[in-house]
Amino acid sequence: MVAENDIRPILLQKYMNDVDKRNFKRNIASLNDIYEFITSYFAKSDIAESNSFSVSLAIEEIFVNMVKYQRESQDDITIELKLERNKLIIILTGYNVEYFDISNVPNIDTKAPLGERKIGRLGLLLTNKLMDKIDYDYNERTCRVTLTKTLEE
């Protein structure tokens, strides 16, 4: 029995509204479903639309990186979104994969002339620019990339 002045159910409901987790097929074609997942989360959590570009881009870059470079795995990738005050925490988890710390990849030279510019590694550079930080954890063939983003009002 819940007392009339007990606000715990309300807080629990609020918390549950601000956490969402979903599995996506390890395929580039999942990007549209991922965008819909992000859009739906933004709407129900009242997150300003101005944050959508940077969050979509960072999630795409990490997801695509996992799809392209963790070819040993066929398992789905889990994406979790949660709000902690004014910060959005984004966690991408890959299962049955080798160790590869994407938070520790050297940046490309963005001042190089056209003839010397490389096509690759641009996504990680942009993710670093758009997120506050990127953390990488690896344990028992499971990798977890955590992105933290301070949200604009």
């Binding site: 570009f53 870059e61 695509v64 690759g120 996504g123 942009l126």
Partner: peptide, 19 residues
């Protein structure tokens, strides 16, 4: 509305080829 590194990389490759 939106472009990621994949699209940017394509533009860079085309620009390099044309140059």
């Amino acid at each position: 509305e939106y472009i990621s590194s994949a699209g940017m990389g394509l533009l860079l490759a085309v620009h390099k080829r044309l140059s």
